[in-house]
Amino acid sequence: MDALLQQVFAGLATGGIYASVALALVMIYQATHHLNFAQGEMAMFSTYLAWSMINAGFGYWAAFFLTVSLSFVLGVVIERVIIRPVENAPVLSVVVVFIGLLVILNSVTGWIYTYTIKTFPSPFPTAPLFGNKFVSSHQIGAIGITLVVLLLLFSFFRFTPLGLAMRAAAQNPVSAKLVGIRVGWMLALGWGLAAAIGSIAGMMVAPIVFLDPNMMGGILLYAFAAALVGGVDSPGGAVFGGFLVGVLENVLGAFVIGNELKLAVALVLIIGVLVVKPSGFFGKVNVSRV
């Protein structure tokens, strides 16, 4: 029983990471209807920025907030400079641009920082909270931060005029322009937000998996899965999906099939979910009109 609880908690902790990357994916999807394949590498790059700052003598939280703001700006710039020229290109061409961005970020980071694995500090105490034996303070902290981010995002979209404008721009760009919304900038803003969220995810995952240019590869896959299982247009669903995938991965890996095939089986399960519920648990079912 203890062993099971341990795995569930560990799953929730990694799930929190998947959830925040998934959240970033859903953000860009909502704003642009594209799934950003470069999301993981953007987060990884941001984490390296944070690492440089901490190494240069910044305090953790100073580096944290600076990285989040810098990532936001970077996200906006990437949209304006790289994505904007292909705004009207076919979907798959845009996907190729994302893939290009992915390999560029990965390669450039490896070039600047080398592929040597680095440690990354956690802002949370090393002693487990309340002396529990299941879950480290960092894991609890990471889950907490994910939930805070979700709450902030929800409030932003639900209650601010800018949030409303972003939703409107994503849904109906033509009408959005007709009420005066600068749709292009809304897309850029969506990218900025997603990059900022991604950077938080990166900084939360780095203490666990260590820092290297390929650290987000596996995470991105699970985050995709989480986003789709939850429903790609639902931020809450993405977070739920993240936790679900995290727990499934750990519990299945430990007790059912062993670590060798856990990736494969977790993914088979996810496909199973999608076949039964093709729009995910919380996604909108699109009725096709003729």
Binding site: L164, R167, A168, Q171, N172, V174, A176
Partner: peptide
């Protein structure tokens, strides 16, 4: 034309 409603809002 077509009214341009934001249907999900």
């Amino acid at each position: 034309d077509g009214r341009g409603t934001f249907v999900n809002l």
